[in-house]
């Protein structure tokens, strides 16, 4: 399988006053197509910062990030935004749904991101059909026109997953996607994510504190104090 995402020597410092606080101190990692990778570590280890850098939401202080072999960390803002839209889907712990929009509209919004009014108008029916299909796929066919406040936590996260997948990204970056759910709902959501991942052969980078969840991935990357301290195949993967 080809490497979709490669990060080499990533460092990130934040300035607090005149002081530079290092958060990442030289991280190397790569993710292949169709691979599920768990990123484990304690709070403050730099997991979320690394996820934001890999998702091109922020620029590293040094190091390189490659998507499909192309260095992208220093591309212009607009170019990075387009790449993010085309390559990356995000799922967050707090869902980040837009409260004014229904479940369907939240998903459709992701399809509108790189189209003009006229372009979208031409393919609005097709876009709506694929959004409905995606929501049905995540089990929300009956909740299309409900707003986030009318949905449970698990349902909101399903909408967020549908939104992350609607633009057909190559990699999904999930930042503690079950951190705000009870264990039963969390299991349902994870099962759903992994099923879709298998169906679409998506690369998956999952930030989590949950060892149990991490062992369901193909590989675990452990972080501490801004360093990657361990990269192992999980026992499941080894057995396979």
């Amino acid at each position: 399988m080809s490497t979709i995402l490669r990060a080499t020597g990533i460092t990130k410092n934040y300035a607090i006053g005149k002081q530079q606080i290092p958060v990442l101190r030289g991280v190397d990692l790569s993710i292949k197509a169709g691979e599920k990778v768990a990123l484990l570590g304690t709070s403050g280890a730099g997991k979320s910062t690394l996820l934001h850098l890999l998702g091109l939401l922020d620029a590293p202080t040094s190091g390189t990030i490659e998507y499909d072999g192309r260095e992208v960390q220093s591309l212009p803002v607009g170019e990075r935004a387009r790449l993010r839209h085309q390559q990356v889907g995000f799922v967050f712990q707090f869902y980040h749904l837009i409260p004014e929009l229904t479940a369907l509209q939240n998903v459709l919004l992701a399809r509108m991101m790189d189209t003009s009014v006229l372009q979208y108008w031409g393919k609005r029916k097709q876009a709506k059909a694929s959004a409905v299909e995606m929501l049905q796929h995540v089990g929300l066919g009956e909740r299309l026109h409900h707003r986030p406040t009318e949905l449970s936590g698990g349902e909101r996260q399903r909408v967020a997953i549908a939104r992350a997948l609607i633009a057909e990204p190559k990699i999904v970056l999930a930042d503690e996607p079950t951190g705000n759910l009870d264990s039963a709902t969390a299991k349902e959501v994870v099962d759903l994510m992994f099923t879709i991942q298998q169906e679409r052969q998506l690369a998956f980078l999952l930030v989590t504190h949950d060892e149990g969840l991490a062992t369901r991935c193909d590989r675990i990357i452990r972080m501490k104090d801004g360093y990657v301290v361990d990269q192992d195949l999980t026992s499941d993967e080894q057995a396979r």
Binding site: G55, L57, V77, G78, A81, R82, R84, H85, Q86, F90, F92, H96, L97, I98, L109, A110, M113, D114, R163, A167
Partner: peptide
Amino acid sequence: TADIGILTAMGGTPSG
């Protein structure tokens, strides 16, 4: 402001 993060994550730019 909470929406600005997700818009950016979905491919939005500051100008957008």
